[in-house]
Design a protein around this nucleic acid. Structure first.
Lengths: 111, 111
DNA sequence: GCAAGTACGCACTAAATAGTGCGTACTTAC
DNA sequence: GTAAGTACGCACTATTTAGTGCGTACTTGC
């Protein structure tokens, strides 16, 4: 959001990812389409305001899709778009690297 | 830096990447080892203070190596560590995704 | 001897981002 | 009828992060 022009592709990708909870949101949505409340439970620690905010930004960037059903207790479902899926795939290796780092940190702590 | 405990690997990775200029720094160091001044020129827009800061954090996270030579006009060289190299590789797909996004954005602008 | 380059540090300010607390209109469960 | 859940919005504050401006100790080039 708004850091254009980008110096390189990484720059453009990080811009979309940027936000304290966005990768967690994307990760959660990879497994299943979710309602707002579910998402809040899947991303421990977010406040409702910030979750809404980040979802709006991800929506504007074409990463998530928002489907609103006009029923009496409101119902909204969030899911990844095609672009979002691709992003998730591109994040795979990064996640694997992070896992190795986590393991290394734990070893260092206990060792 | 400091957001532990992590929910998943992605979380742990993003923590290291997080900072307005870090991916650009890592990207610059991928091509060559650099002196402080070179890095400043390669990362257009950073101030010296912030560049120093982010380099220190990347160093603490084991991503970059700092080699200081004790000569009269000071000389310091920064390079990626093995971990840093791996991170860079893991960032490859993300960069590719971002490039596609950049292209799409340009098309939309001109189209 | 004066400016510029070397690689920063420090005190302070500005900007960006996230969090708090409360309100909505309605429904189901107890 | 009271609490809890649905999916937010709004005004405000706090926290985090980045930027500004200046100083250092020394050397080379003009």
């Amino acid at each position: 959001m708004g850091r254009q022009p980008y110096v390189c592709g990484l720059d453009a990708a990080v811009d979309v990812i940027d936000g304290k909870w966005k990768v967690l949101i994307i990760w959660a949505l990879n497994h299943q389409r979710c309602r707002f409340g579910e998402l809040r439970r899947l991303v421990p620690g977010v406040t409702e305001k910030v979750l809404t905010q980040q979802l709006r930004e991800l929506e504007a960037d074409g990463i998530v899709h928002r489907e609103s059903y006009d029923v009496k207790p409101p119902k909204v479902e969030y899911s990844l778009t095609g672009l979002g899926d691709e992003l998730n795939t591109a994040l795979g290796p990064l996640g694997a690297w992070g896992k190795r780092r986590m393991a290394a940190l734990e070893d260092a702590e206990q060792g």
